[in-house]
Every structure is written in structure tokens, then in C-alpha cells.
Amino acid sequence: MTRFASFAELHAACLDLPQGDAEAAARVARREAVLTKPARSLGRLEELVEWLGLWQGKSPPSLERVEILVFAGNHGVTAQGVSAFPAEVTAQMVANFAGGGAAINQLARAAGAELRVVALALDRPTADFTEAPAMDEAEFLDAVGAGYDAVPEGADLVVLGEMGIGNTTSAAALAAALFGGGGSRFAGRGTGIDEQALARKRAVIDRALALHADTLGDPLRAAAAVGGRELAAMLGACLAARHNRVPVLIDGFVSTAAVAPLARLSAGALDHACAGHLSAESAHRILLQELGLSPLLDLDMRLGEGSGAAVAVLVLRAALACHTGMATFAEAQVSGKGA
């Protein structure tokens, strides 16, 4: 039985969003105020610990159980020549994840995180969205439900990642559907396409936007029309995390586009989410600005797999280490300001 029976049921779930625990965040702030440092001298590190406390509902917050969820899907639009790699690479990379040989395996280990890969019907690519909706209602809801159910109980933090040849085309099409500007605004080089392929990618996106113009006003139907299964699953995982008050780190352009429909449906829907990094994919900065998200890192990364957000977990661990390990002025017998 699918978790969401209809677009209407999913839409309602996207509007039923719990808020964070303001008292827990206040307790975090009170401790920060008496640690042996000038006020706010650790900048965003202090804000991040408050954010963790707000959504975990505890002070101090914890990063004992960090879950990296990588969703993989295949895209029919690759038939239009929009990617530098063939579609079979998706399944090959999933096998590489299983064998421990990908970048995300190493980064998950370094970040002290559990990596789980969820492959979504790799033998059945989505439809070519220049000819038909990428997914019908049932297919889309199944993928959203798979992502929703992938978020485990008791997680302290969820990191969203993806793998799918052709998915920067889907992400760009979805971003354009949600925020306007067409292929020229959001299409980038993805896995490294040349100028000719980039022009083709932009034209493909514009054709898709024209074909599905009647449905693009609804963010969920837009995600079904021009998205992909792994994008839908990330949306579902982000929604589950919100319902369970689990903070989320978003990875790059594809992950950000995947969760953007939530923000278009409800202001504040991504308050429990933080952008792990700024991707080198050209449109990621534009999309983050549209969503009001400020990335933690800018390392010129564009791999996907959750890799940039996995590195950002180390920043969160540094922030939490300072918060829990530092002495207070009283404990250290250090004179406070004005003393």
C-alpha cells in the first residue's frame, strides 16, 4: 500500500508541518552565551548548533546517528542526448556504492555517517518528458513514499544525495517550472557536456515546459511531469524528516531542486533544512537564492552523491564539539565581559 494515495493527500501532508522546539534552541543559546569566547565569535557555528537543537528538540543536540540517503533513478530524457554519460552508468555507480568504491563511501566514513543507497526502478526509466509526463500520479507517489519511508526513526541528521544520469536536466526543468526563466536560466553542464550538448539540453527543457504548461502551476504535478524518481524520493525524505523533526542537509543542485516544491507549497517548509554546499553547477546559486538558503561550504564540487553535504557534516560536528566541550566562564574561572 502506497503511503500517499493521491496528489491531494500528499499536498495536505506538505502543509501539515510541525515547528521546531523553540525552548530547546533557547537553552542552546543560553549556554553559548556563557562559553569562554566573545559573544557570537564562532559565527555560523553557533547558529548551526541552535538550529540542531531547534529541530532535534534537545539541548545539547546530538550527532550520534547521521544518515546519508542516496537515491538513484534513471531518466528517459537521456534519449535526447543531454548527458555526457550513458544511462547504464546509474546502475554501475549503485554497484560501486555497494562495493565501497565511490567518493561518498569515503566521505560518509570520514563524517561518521551511515550510508544507505535506495535504487528506484533502475530498469524502468521515467518517460522522456519531452513526449509525456516523466511519471504518472501513481509512479510519482510511489517514489515519494519510498523516500518518506527511508528516513529511519531516531536519526539525528539526514543528508540527502542522489545518483541518476540525466538528472541535472530534470532538476533544471523542475527549477524552471517553479521559478521561471526556462532552460537558459537553469541548464548547466552537468557531467561535463560540451556547448552543442548544452544548447540541446536547454532546448529540451524548453520543449518540456511548453508541453506540460497546463500542469506546472502545481509544484507537485510539476515534479511528476519533469522530475525523476530520485528527485521525488528526496522530496519524500525531506518531508518525512520535517514530520519527525529531524534536521536535513541538502547536497547540490539536484537535491535542492528536488525539495524546492515543498517551499513553493508552504513558506518555511525548508526551515529544518540547510544547504550543505554551493555546487559548481551554474544554476545552484540561483536556486539557493530563490529559496533563501545560504550554503555552508563552497568547494567547487559538482559530483552529487550527497558528497558536498557529507563534507558539511564535519562542520556541524565541529560546531557541536565547541558547544559541548568548551568551558563556561565560571568553570574556567575566566573573567567575563565587563568583569
Score class of each variant (00 low, 15 high):
2 T>W: 00
2 T>A: 11
4 F>D: 01
4 F>R: 02
7 F>W: 15
9 E>H: 02
11 H>I: 01
12 A>L: 02
17 L>T: 13
20 G>I: 11
20 G>T: 12
22 A>W: 03
27 R>N: 10
28 V>D: 07
36 T>I: 07
36 T>S: 04
36 T>H: 07
39 A>P: 01
40 R>T: 10
41 S>W: 12
47 E>T: 15
52 L>D: 06
57 G>E: 12
59 S>T: 14
59 S>L: 09
64 E>N: 14
69 L>N: 10
69 L>Y: 13
69 L>D: 12
70 V>F: 10
76 G>A: 01
76 G>P: 00
78 T>M: 02
81 G>H: 02
83 S>G: 05
86 P>C: 13
87 A>K: 06
93 M>C: 08
96 N>D: 08
97 F>H: 03
97 F>V: 06
97 F>K: 00
98 A>C: 02
114 E>I: 11
131 E>Q: 15
135 M>N: 06
138 A>I: 00
138 A>C: 03
142 D>I: 03
143 A>W: 00
145 G>Y: 01
148 Y>K: 05
151 V>Q: 01
153 E>P: 08
154 G>W: 14
155 A>P: 02
157 L>T: 06
164 G>L: 03
164 G>F: 06
165 I>Y: 05
165 I>M: 05
166 G>K: 02
166 G>V: 01
167 N>A: 03
169 T>G: 01
172 A>Y: 11
175 A>H: 04
178 L>H: 07
178 L>C: 06
185 R>V: 11
187 A>S: 12
189 R>D: 02
197 A>N: 07
199 A>M: 03
212 H>V: 11
213 A>W: 09
215 T>V: 15
215 T>M: 05
216 L>E: 04
220 L>M: 06
224 A>H: 02
225 A>T: 07
228 G>I: 00
229 R>C: 00
230 E>K: 01
231 L>G: 13
237 A>G: 14
240 A>C: 08
241 A>F: 13
241 A>Y: 11
243 H>E: 08
247 P>D: 03
249 L>C: 14
250 I>E: 07
252 G>V: 03
255 S>N: 10
258 A>G: 10
259 V>W: 05
259 V>M: 04
260 A>F: 14
260 A>L: 05
261 P>S: 13
265 L>Y: 05
267 A>W: 01
275 A>M: 01
275 A>W: 01
276 G>E: 02
276 G>M: 01
277 H>K: 03
278 L>I: 04
278 L>Y: 04
288 L>M: 05
288 L>Q: 05
291 L>A: 09
293 L>Q: 13
294 S>W: 12
298 D>L: 01
301 M>A: 13
301 M>V: 09
303 L>M: 10
304 G>N: 08
307 S>T: 14
312 A>E: 04
314 L>I: 14
314 L>P: 12
315 V>W: 10
317 R>F: 10
318 A>L: 13
318 A>Y: 14
320 L>V: 04
320 L>Q: 05
322 C>D: 11
328 T>N: 09
329 F>C: 07
329 F>T: 10
336 G>K: 07
